[in-house]
Design a protein around this nucleic acid. Structure first.
Lengths: 211, 211
DNA sequence: ACAAAAGTGTTGCTGTTACACCCATGG
DNA sequence: CCATGGGTGTAACAGCAACACTTTTGT
């Protein structure tokens, strides 16, 4: 390949959602060689008349049945051999959504139990999970509201935090902190569970953790 | 311009250094139109046989008289009109170094007193200063050691923190925290100042703040 | 001796941790 | 009445904020 100043650029869109106290990611099964039947982060090659952000929106429009209005870039990957065929520069974006009905050749995976992934896509994910967790713990950009657009019980939310922190949290201390930080509102509604019904809460729009 | 999947990509390299308790950035004066005599973040167009990281190293080699071994990407910018001539995708990297002798057409600027900058370069800087400050306050990747490879007094270090936080810090509390977090070592050396000489310290290699 | 900057401790406040029992519901 | 999960308070501890005087050097 001749030296040139033109490059192929792609966006990769890592789509995350909360599911039963865990974080899942939506991956796509690759149907062609190379890496046939491996899983990939969905994406799209960038044309020279669109921005990365427009490209991300287009990918989301194909995969998510409602509008996305928030996402963020994590990193750009440019190794010469990340694609065996030609050098493609990949910029990864993270999107948070609700876990929605499934699509052809797509599946939600727990981020702790990823399938065999093509190219450097597992690496790309790994390099961004710590940052994702940091954003969750600090509720940056109201990311918790993106994970929980619906109402939820504090037990569900606690399970999610325990997943992110990978450790048990005391129930009383957790509730104290949540109420103290003023990030949730009472709905008065209850949800039926196997035992005593739990109260449902929603996230405040402007709520931020201290710091 | 015809639609194509080939893009021009450039690296921009924001070079920071500590100077008398402030953060300075090394900018380059543009000598040609457009934006003649405006200031730019130094950079370089990427060829299809080099990675972004290699490109960053090449830029640094031209501008800094010693080896750089640490830098990090901040964000990729892809607006269609960020360059009036053609669409160029820019990935910005941050480098921390020591403030060294000056180069032709280059100058160190206080990050709070930037000159007239070309293109979207001021925007690119702004979008990354908060993150830079966060890394400093948490000493991520031993970034303080990169800012202070030499020895320093606690008064100097405190001035730097006050600059980053944009507020006064109590001297006693500051020293308590620094010693508590175990990130500096005594050298026993003193430096002459206008009053009582201050002790010089160095950063520990493995020292991290709590969190 | 005085000017200039470095060095040093204590107290109150605030947030975090650790810990165990009662309550509401369904079967 | 029992099984299941939800809801609640208090005490010890740690980190953080506020506060002023003494020490070392150069002139």
């Amino acid at each position: 390949m001749a030296k040139s100043y033109y490059n192929v650029v792609e966006t990769l869109v890592s789509i995350f959602a909360e599911d039963k106290g865990t974080i899942k990611i939506l991956l796509q099964r690759k149907k062609t060689e190379p890496y046939r039947n491996y899983w990939i982060i969905p994406g799209k090659v960038l044309s020279n008349d669109e921005t990365l952000e427009v490209s991300v929106k287009k990918v989301c429009d194909k995969l998510i049945p409602f509008d996305i209005n928030d996402f963020y870039e994590t990193k750009t990957f440019s190794s010469l051999d990340r694609d065996p065929v030609e050098r493609i520069i990949a910029t990864n974006f993270n999107v948070i959504t609700s876990k929605v009905t499934q699509y052809e050749n797509m599946q939600w995976f727990d981020i702790n139990a990823l399938p065999k992934m093509a190219y450097d896509h597992e690496q790309i994910l790994f390099e961004n999970l710590d940052e994702l967790k940091r954003r969750i713990l600090h509720n940056e950009n109201n990311i918790l509201l993106q994970f929980f657009p619906h109402d939820f019980t504090l037990t569900e939310l606690q399970a999610f935090f325990e997943f992110v922190l990978d450790k048990k949290i005391d129930r009383r201390n957790f509730r104290k902190k949540i109420f103290n930080d003023n990030i949730v509102s009472h709905t008065g509604e209850k949800i039926k569970t196997a035992g005593r019904p739990g109260e449902l809460f929603v996230f405040n729009k402007g709520g931020y953790f201290n710091e």
